[in-house]
Amino acid sequence: MARGRESRDARMRERLTQEAARIMAVEGVRDFSQAKRKAAAHLGAPSTTNLPQNKEIQAALVEYQRLFGGEEQAQALHALRQMALEAMDFFAAFRPRLVGEVLEGTAAEGAPIELHCFADTPEDVVFFLMDQGIPFDTDQRRLRFDTDPVTLPCHRFLAGDAEVQLVVMDPKGLRQPPRSPIDGRPMRRASRSQLAEMLN
């Protein structure tokens, strides 16, 4: 009896993983928790005990993009990475690092370009944006480092058709990346030179 239930649970977990990955790829949902909830609702999952981990969904998302994204997704990703390179040149004074979907390769058209920038004070980036005449909105981003989550300013603006998101950190953040929401390990980041190599 227990073995049969475990088998059903494993099958449901796999279905939830695949559906959450599809939702993120097709519907543009970028929050893992939201994708899990929508997948559970779509599949009529009776409980949340079988919800997959973020890293399982990320692996399924990469595979989904490989199978179904095709040339269209590859072209969109290349264009976003090219725009990210230009944004990193523009914000070079703040030693930007690329993170998120555009770096990981799962971004499709409409995905945001996420940059970590480093400044002595958060106002330095605000003044730079204002001096350049760039309209922007500001909200907050919660990131986890070694201890409790930290709330950081995030400035959003449009560059062509792409949204750029600048999360501003203290310079010591260069040496200590926040934890990835995917697997809890230090977040993968790319410098300008590393991104340029990816584009070559």
Rank of each mutant, 00 (worst) to 15 (best):
G44A: 00
T49E: 15
E72W: 07
N54P: 00
Q53D: 14
G44K: 03
I57N: 07
Y64I: 00
G69F: 04
P52S: 14
T48R: 12
L43Q: 12
N50F: 08
Q58I: 03
G70E: 13
E63T: 09
S33K: 13
T48S: 12
L67M: 12
G69Q: 06
L67W: 04
V62P: 02
I57V: 08
A45W: 05
A39K: 00
R66A: 05
A45T: 09
E56V: 02
V62Q: 08
L67K: 07
A40D: 03
K36A: 02
V62T: 04
S47I: 08
E56Q: 01
Q58H: 11
R37P: 06
I57D: 08
N50V: 10
E72R: 13
T49K: 14
E56F: 00
G44T: 04
E63V: 05
E71A: 10
S33F: 12
A41T: 13
R66P: 01
F68Q: 14
T48C: 05
K36M: 01
E56K: 00
A40I: 01
E72L: 10
K38E: 06
Q58K: 07
I57S: 10
N50M: 13
S47Y: 09
Q34E: 15
V62W: 04
I57E: 07
A45K: 10
G70Q: 07
P52N: 06
K38T: 06
F68C: 07
G70N: 12
Y64A: 01
K36W: 01
R66H: 08
S33E: 14
T48E: 13
P52M: 10
A40N: 02
T48D: 11
F68P: 05
T48H: 09
